[in-house]
């Protein structure tokens, strides 16, 4: 067996789950397992307790209101992607989700899990940051709301306390007249992006958020930048680095090309609304 031994708990209430996390400083939450189980199998993580939250009730709802979308912690990427109400309220959510892994992974992985996993190569943390969304958490100290700006504190690191469970995420609705777009370059559709860009255009404001370019989600304000200068302005703000997947120079080129392309698509989207 590849993972190291652990005690397995499958609580049926949130209070019990929080209690289980408080009781063991080395415990980990298991949601869809699409990021955690590989880490366990490679023994990059070896928690002493796994708290499987898939038995909790009330965390599987997608609620679409006038001002945005609330997504429960057990909502799978695939269900959020297929939801018509979500598409109408905040089209950037499905536009980006279509690039999150392959359909088979999306059937099990949760969108909230992806937000709190806080991988710089993941699409949804960049989307939450751009839209100014938030995550609702519950811990032994009670419930609180963490704004997207305060969520990710480092690569794979969030501001959640050890015994806090994310119960839902909030994606604000797209304002009338505003436009969004998303695109990324990956080796294959569904692979982690070498570079991804989400853009929100609202009146004169143009903002872009990047995937796989920086350690934590960064939102770059491109308002007032001439079309021809968009790419260079983004590269100057981001300063992409080398890694095993791409050189810094190649990544900078992807930022230049994608920024112009996605800003244009978001403007077009705004004009159509």
């Amino acid at each position: 067996m590849k993972p190291a031994p652990f005690s397995y708990l499958r609580p049926t209430s949130l209070a019990e789950a929080v209690q289980a996390l408080s009781a063991d400083p080395d415990a980990k939450v298991l949601a869809g397992g699409q990021s955690l189980v590989p880490l366990l199998s490679m023994r990059l993580a070896a928690p002493s307790t796994i708290v499987d939250i898939n038995g909790l009730t009330g965390l599987s709802d997608i609620e679409v209101g006038d001002d945005g979308v609330r997504v429960g912690a057990l909502v799978r990427h695939a269900d959020l992607l297929a939801h018509d109400g979500v598409r109408r309220s905040q089209p950037l959510v499905p536009l980006a989700l279509a690039h999150v892994a392959h359909a088979t992974i999306r059937n099990r992985g949760t969108t909230v899990g992806s937000l709190v996993h806080a991988d710089a190569a993941a699409e949804m943390p960049a989307v939450l940051a751009l839209l100014g969304g938030s995550v609702e958490v519950v811990g032994s100290a009670g419930a609180r709301t963490i704004d997207a700006d305060d969520l990710v504190v480092g690569p794979l690191e969030t501001s959640l306390a050890h015994d806090e469970i994310a119960v839902s995420a909030w994606f604000p609705a797209l304002a009338p007249g505003a436009g969004v777009a998303f695109d990324e370059i990956a080796r294959r559709q569904g692979d982690y992006a070498l570079c991804g860009v989400a853009v929100l255009v609202e009146g004169d404001s143009v903002r872009a958020s990047y995937v796989s370019v920086s350690d934590v989600p960064v939102v770059v304000d491109l308002s007032g930048v001439a079309d021809d200068d968009l790419g260079d302005a983004a590269v100057a703000a981001l300063d992409p680095a080398d890694d095993i997947h791409a050189t810094a120079a190649y990544r900078a080129q992807l930022v230049r090309v994608l920024t112009r392309r996605v800003v244009a698509a978001a403007r077009e989207g705004a004009d159509r609304r």
């Binding site: 397995y8 499958r10 298991l30 397992g33 699409q34 189980v37 590989p38 199998s41 499987d52 898939n54 088979t104 992974i105 059937n107 099990r108």
Partner: peptide, 10 residues
């Protein structure tokens, strides 16, 4: 789903 990313208990 990936059977390698799911525990049998789950």
């Amino acid at each position: 789903v990936r059977a390698c990313l799911l525990f049998a208990v789950s």
